[in-house]
């Protein structure tokens, strides 16, 4: 059961179950986001006289958001790497970098939303804006939740060190963070790139 080369977060039976359960939850999240995507695709062209995606999207801002999130996913991976090498301080540093990048992403996204509202696209404008803001907002809410969650875990790691329990909690949070990056890739591709004029 507990070989020496098993990562710490997989040692106890309960941790294995927690990680598996979280993967199952991510399956549910895939269904949730694909429902949001499906609704967006159905309503995409129903702008009801309001602005369409191509009128308001700004490539530069979206690219910055994308790079922020991609980088944060990378640094979250580094944090796990250091966690597995039992290097607590390195792990904490890279986690803080991850959180800062995540906060930067949120800052950009909120500004982007404010920009859209000034352009006359609020969530109440049309079928398109409703689906757009809800898809983006759900992702943004997930990022917000992730930042708070990982911050709480950071306290626990700092206090308790890298143990069987804290490592499995942190590993699960990192899965969540990578998953949000996956969702963003599809938003970037199928909402922004597809919606702009080439």
């Amino acid at each position: 059961m507990t070989q020496a080369n098993t990562p710490l977060e997989y040692r106890s039976h309960q941790s294995q179950m927690n990680i598996l359960g979280f993967w199952i939850f991510l399956g549910a999240e895939i269904v949730l986001f694909s429902t949001l995507f499906a609704s967006y695709f159905v309503l995409e062209h129903n702008t009801a006289g309001g602005p369409a995606g191509q009128d308001i999207f700004i490539l530069k801002d979206v690219l910055i958001e994308t790079f922020l999130l991609l980088t944060s996913s990378f640094t979250a991976g580094l944090a796990i790497h250091f966690m597995r090498n039992n290097a607590k301080n390195d792990m904490i540093v890279w986690t803080i970098v991850t959180l800062l990048l995540g906060a930067g992403f949120l800052y950009m996204e909120i500004n982007e939303f404010i920009h859209y509202v000034h352009e006359g696209a609020t969530i109440q404008t049309s079928g398109f804006t409703a689906a757009f803001f809800t898809l983006l907002g759900t992702h943004g809410a997930h990022v917000t939740f992730g930042i708070i969650w990982i911050s709480l875990l950071l306290f626990q790691i700092a206090k308790r060190g890298i143990t069987e329990k804290t490592s499995s909690k942190f590993f699960i949070a990192s899965l969540y963070w990578h998953f949000l990056d996956v969702v963003w890739i599809f938003i970037f591709t199928f909402v922004y790139l597809k919606g702009m004029v080439g």
Partner: peptide, 16 residues
């Protein structure tokens, strides 16, 4: 919140 997912007049789709 007054969105229009399902109201036809503003580009929603009740069949959704």
């Amino acid at each position: 919140f007054g969105t229009h997912f399902f109201t036809v007049a503003a580009g929603g789709d009740p069949m959704l």
